[in-house]
Lab assay of single mutants.
Amino acid sequence: MTVRVDGVDYEFSSLEEAVRFALKMAKSKGAEVQLHNGTFHVE
């Protein structure tokens, strides 16, 4: 599972870890999280 934040990809071994990271980053940026074909994008 890959989480992309500001064009940088972060790899996670589990969906749970990836979701937690994506939500944490989105909250800190006041951004939204989108899921596309198994890849999260924080914008």
Rank of each mutant, 00 (worst) to 15 (best):
A31I: 07
T39R: 11
K27I: 15
H36F: 12
T39W: 07
F40R: 02
V19Q: 08
T2G: 02
E17H: 04
F40G: 06
E43C: 15
S28A: 12
V5Q: 01
D6Y: 05
H41D: 08
G38T: 05
V33N: 02
K27Q: 15
G7N: 06
K27M: 14
H36G: 06
A31L: 11
T39H: 10
V8W: 04
G38C: 15
E17A: 10
A26F: 07
R4G: 02
R4D: 01
G30F: 07
Q34R: 14
G38S: 05
V42R: 04
S13M: 09
K27Y: 15
F12K: 00
V5W: 04
F21D: 01
L15D: 03
F12W: 01
D6P: 00
V42H: 07
M25N: 03
S13W: 09
D6Q: 04
A26R: 04
V3C: 09
F21V: 01
E17N: 03
V3G: 00
V3S: 00
M25P: 00
K29C: 15
K24M: 12
L35H: 05
K24L: 12
M25W: 09
T39I: 15
A22Q: 02
F40W: 13
D9Q: 06
T2L: 09
V5H: 03
M25L: 06
D6F: 08
T2M: 11
M1I: 13
N37G: 10
T39A: 10
V5I: 06
V42L: 05
G30D: 09
V8E: 05
G38P: 06
F21Y: 05
G7L: 02
A26G: 05
G30C: 14
G38H: 09
T2V: 10
E11H: 13
K29A: 11
V3A: 01
Y10C: 08
R20T: 10
T2Y: 12
N37R: 04
R20Q: 11
K24D: 15
A18Y: 02
A26Y: 07
G30T: 05
G7S: 03
E17Y: 02
E11L: 12
A26L: 09
L23H: 11
E16T: 06
F40E: 07
G7Y: 02
V42M: 04
